[in-house]
Design a protein around this nucleic acid. Structure first.
Lengths: 201, 201
DNA sequence: AGCAAAATCAACACAGTGTTGATTTGAAAA
DNA sequence: TTTTCAAATCAACACTGTGTTGATTTTGCT
């Protein structure tokens, strides 16, 4: 049996310290010493749980990505076939993200781990690819631009939107954002921006 | 007078070494020692030109961003009012980026500097904000979603597209991509992907 | 109360950093 | 060609952070 209570307390102190340190001095400048002294634990103890600073961040991120993947799996085989299905899935994913807002804000901020965004993108890409294979019949129309670009942009815009929401100081509600995500799937950038651009050449 | 030739040769050797090292071992794991030994210069010489590894990368990136900003300034006051103006600006910007493809590929790859993407976004945001102020009359329609989200997504999708293109092994021509960018401004994600999604709830 | 896991502590070699002062090299002006 | 001076080389320095060690103490659990 592990002394789970002891471990849990230590890991807790570490996470609180790390979030605080990311926000104050930035992840890249944090040392293991910083973490352990802020968490008021022995430096050796840190190495009992983590290989190094990057391993620590990896564990946090992997945990979040895993939970998020499960949410998506619940909706497989997607893609969703209707607006309301898109909205429902968005709602569930956003609700989970919101529950981890403190950690996510730190990791996704300028002071955080700039690689995390890429990991999120790759996870989503993997999930989408899995389901797209089973859903080829959905692809009925030919797009005006190569699929690779379309996929990349769809992914970037949605990931960008969610991260933007996470980083807001007074974020809109989960429900509002789920609706916004749904709407944006059906609107062009020019229309989203409300611009009047002459589409004649 | 500076021994410009000497300096230029040194800086050249360093850049070649850095690009190579980023591609092989990744920017985060590169030491100043690695750079100087690969460039076959004395370690002290490095510090004659750069404060540290990050200063070096900053200089490369700042240089690229500056050139890119100039290109955009040539088109001020934009925003462009027609498709052809969008395409022309895209063409010019892409042509410059293409001329720096080797360095950009390294910096923007998984092994590169994950912060660079953010810097590009911020630069574009600044340029757009500058011009949007002067072009308020362009904003005629009310968008269905808050402007902040629309702007973020438009930015993310276009930056994502360009970076995707930079990282391709056999990239499409500058002209093709300029056309693609232009088209995407007027199309919704669902249409870009060619999906048949039921928009009824 | 007694066991075992977890945390503490001091000490270690090591790698990379950034800086120094003295010396050599070499491109270009006189 | 010779002179000159900025640039590059070189060896040595103190310093910081790392990751690991073995011995010891603490503390939750049964």
């Amino acid at each position: 049996m592990k002394d789970n209570i002891k471990v849990a307390r230590t890991l807790n102190q570490i996470q609180i310290a790390v979030i605080d340190l990311i926000n104050t001095k930035g992840l890249s400048k944090i040392t293991v010493r910083d973490i352990t002294s802020a968490a008021k634990i022995n430096r050796g103890t840190f190495y009992l749980h983590f290989k190094d600073k990057f391993d620590l961040i990896d564990q946090y991120e992997a945990n979040i990505l895993e939970k998020l993947t499960e949410t998506f799996k619940k909706y497989t085989p997607l893609l969703p076939r209707s607006e309301s299905e898109i909205e429902q899935l968005s709602l569930e994913a956003l609700t989970y993200l919101n529950s981890e807002r403190r950690l996510l804000r730190a990791l996704l901020s300028e002071n955080g781990d700039p690689v995390f965004t890429n990991k999120i993108k790759h996870m989503l890409q993997y999930v989408l690819r899995e389901t797209l294979i089973k859903q080829k019949e959905l692809m009925v129309k030919k797009s005006a631009i190569p699929a690779k670009y379309a996929q990349e942009m769809a992914l970037d815009s949605i990931v960008g939107l969610v991260i933007f929401w996470i980083l807001e100081d007074e974020p809109d509600s989960v429900k509002e954002v789920a609706q916004i995500i749904t709407r944006t799937r059906f609107m062009a950038p020019v229309d989203l921006l409300g611009l009047a651009i002459n589409s004649k050449r």
